[in-house]
């Protein structure tokens, strides 16, 4: 298990979280290299189908990150993501996906340290959970 490197798909909002991810890189905040970023315009653009697709294609975890409530670049796309996250989490739970494998986080453009923190924390917790199947 020691050489197990989980693969995490991260859907990052172009305006906040992706900026934070870039800034985390610019600031050289060291992060676990387990996250594969997919840039989307808005967390509200993330169709739960993508999450299922990621899991069914072999991802060990999925992160969706967007702007903080009230700060959405598209007014309230992040709120749609928030609404979806609960029902989706319930569905995933029913199908035996461990709770920590799907997360929705609010990460503002200014929160690059937090981005790194979330990535590291999530990588570590998914590593503890082990592979999906």
């Amino acid at each position: 298990m020691t050489d197990y490197e989980p693969k995490i798909i991260a859907f990052l909002c172009n305006w906040c979280s992706y900026v934070a991810a870039d800034a985390a890189g610019v600031s050289r905040f060291q992060q676990a290299a387990n996250v594969r970023v997919i840039r989307v315009f808005c967390s509200g653009m993330v169709d739960p189908s993508y999450v299922l697709k990621a899991f069914s294609s072999g991802a060990d975890a999925v992160l969706v990150a967007g702007c903080h409530p009230g700060d959405c670049h598209y007014i309230s796309g992040n709120m749609k993501a928030l609404r979806r996250s609960f029902l989706l989490a319930n569905l995933l739970k029913e199908m035996g996906v461990d709770e920590g494998r799907f997360r929705l986080e609010w990460i503002a453009a200014s929160e690059s340290p937090r981005y790194a923190e979330v990535i590291n924390e999530m990588s570590e917790s998914v590593r503890q959970l082990g592979p999906m199947h």
Partner: peptide, 20 residues
């Protein structure tokens, strides 16, 4: 792609609240 994911997405997107 997946009927369940779409049901989840379509219904939950219209939940009439923004409070977690």
């Amino acid at each position: 792609f997946d009927p369940g994911a779409k049901m989840v997405s379509a219904i939950s997107s219209t939940f009439e609240t923004e409070k977690p």
